[in-house]
Design a binder for these strands. Structure first.
Lengths: 336, 336
DNA sequence: TAGTTCGACTAGAACGATCTAGACGACGAC
DNA sequence: GTCGTCGTCTAGATCGTTCTAGTCGAACTA
């Protein structure tokens, strides 16, 4: 069996390069105060030994870790896209990301503790479920950024997508296609469901249309049940709470021989992976995960580096047009 | 703005309780060597001050972090299930998990470095793509466990599902339903694709059947294309590389008016979230993610704590019967 | 009584980095 | 020639823990 080898330290590099530890430290973190020639010599020695700074020791002394904590839910595919984008943005700003998942039997509070223990300087929480009070408690230690949820109190930053605007775009799109009977299948108790439901109601009224809301949920199963309810009195268009719900709705239509978009238009929300599949081609409202993620990371870094106060960032979603929405046609007369 | 408050240290507690730092340390980690009376006194003082050990300092000194590094791919929904289960198992064995994702522009090597930096004592990598040599390089530093991939060299542990057995079960299931013309849509260059393809070939021959392989891939799009190829000469059953591929295959059949399982049986692999959807009900081979995850965590912990040599753990997958496979019927005669 | 053992406790050295204060030589100004 | 300045480099303190090697007194043994 091979012996597990000790990881090289500053001292090792210093000896190899024939200089002091302090100088190696200076070179490694790119601080001024080293001659170019020795800088090269030290870097060479470090590379040779495969040296990497021990973040625990560094942190103990300097309290700078350049580490951002990101909390996501392992059961939400949409979160994965955000994680992906967050890495890119953090890297661009010279930070690393420490991940922690909310999973079954692993509450948000636990995820937060873990991240603080490994030395995260700021926390980004995707769709946090903690109360504003609990969040504020943590926000007194480190900057906290809430992603995809807005009502998080004054001590916590938030980066979110404008749900109201998203629904407005959805209603306007369908209205412009001549639809008058537009139903909303809501998200039940899911985050953002209330905002979207209210936005839908307001926008419909603004267009002089009657809002009809069918209870739903955040996944295919609830969408399918809602689809069956819809069939009792088929509208000409549906705005689903999200793409997964839309998928369920469409599936129930398919089983009943109702064709899309000829008989009814279906609009999703999230522009997720599913919506893009060639055999789905779901028109959807995109929250643009990469942009949201980048905004959250920027916010976190700004808070860590500067002293600016917590604030809100709101981005406007946009429509991604595919195959499931079309002009209100003959069916409107027939079905009415 | 509220000032960020300094957290209390061992010294603070020691002063408050009127003892030495060392004794507080002993009490805090429940080590033997303190009288019950002083133990209570110290605990009381610690509680009073809201003391929490600074894990950075603790880890720096003790080199025990009780931290397991887990590397997954943000684009694989199947990995999320494993992450979920790994948390539970690690927690049960008194360890924490540090997560790191492989994402676009963020290679595996980078993910590994991050985890080592925060002090992971062992690495669990889901479907690693590094070469055995590169893996071995890291395995000299810390125990490395490969999950879902077997050919990783002698220095690296592996926990995997027996692909051969999985395919054997698949072929046997379909053969027992009377199918003779069973086609395999492979996974292209995806991990495990080669093993499953070969297992399929061998098992078909063992049953005296002729193996037919259609090139595919790990997702819906490639599955759909394969489905179209299949239609030129429809077999009575298909074994897809995974569930997503099966979904694509089924979609292409649906578009062509081919019904499942009346005209053709479709069998997936992974028993993922998709397979379980009420309108999909895909029969599938389950690798049992929670069990695999638990085995990987156990392996990692055993390696960290004991001195046992690297080894292989192989689990046998099982069949989950749903609605997409059925008896070979009339179509066999008609289509031939 | 002297020696041994034992439990309770402590001082001080790690751990691996950063930071502060200062040394040293070279160079220019007066 | 002395002084100050500047750039480069180093020694040693420090962060908050844990670990090692004791000390100290009481109890037990012979």
């Amino acid at each position: 069996m091979t012996e597990l080898q000790r990881r090289p330290t500053l001292m090792d590099v210093a000896k190899a390069a024939g200089v002091s530890r302090a100088l190696v430290s200076i070179v490694m973190r790119g601080a001024p105060g080293a001659a170019e020639s020795t800088r090269q010599k030290v870097l060479e020695a470090a590379r040779e030994l495969g040296y990497r700074a021990d973040s625990r020791a560094r942190l103990l002394r300097s309290s700078r870790t350049k580490l951002l904590g990101l909390i996501f839910s392992s059961s939400q595919p949409f979160h994965a896209e955000i994680v992906d984008a967050a890495y890119a943005e953090a890297s661009a700003r010279g930070y690393e990301i420490a991940l922690s998942a909310v999973a079954t039997g692993r509450p948000e509070a636990r995820a937060i503790e873990t991240l603080l223990d490994v030395g995260a300087e700021a926390l980004i929480i995707i769709a946090p479920t903690l109360s504003p009070e609990d969040l504020a408690l943590h926000a007194r230690r480190v900057p906290v950024v809430s992603l995809l949820r807005e009502d998080v109190g004054d001590l916590v930053d938030s980066v979110s997508s404008d749900d109201y605007a998203g629904i407005r775009i959805a209603v306007e799109h369908l209205a412009s296609l001549g639809h008058c009977r537009i139903t909303h299948v809501d998200g039940g108790t899911a985050v953002s469901s209330d905002q979207r439901r209210e936005a839908y109601r307001t926008e419909m009224l603004r267009h002089g249309l009657e809002p009809v809301i069918v209870p739903g949920g955040p996944d295919e199963e609830t969408g399918m049940r809602a689809g069956q309810v819809l069939q009792a009195d088929l509208p000409t268009a549906v705005i689903a709470f999200n793409d997964r719900s839309a998928l369920g709705i469409m599936e129930s239509f398919r089983a009943a021989g109702i064709s899309i978009p000829a008989d009814i238009s279906v609009l999703g929300y999230d522009d997720s992976h599913f919506a893009r599949l060639s055999y789905v081609q779901l028109s959807s409202i995109s929250q643009d995960a990469p942009l949201l993620a980048a905004a959250a990371v920027d916010r976190a870094v700004d808070r860590v580096e500067g002293t600016l106060p917590p604030g809100r960032v709101v981005r406007t979603p946009h429509l991604v047009l595919r195959r499931t929405t079309g002009h209100a046609g003959a069916q409107k007369v027939g079905q009415n």
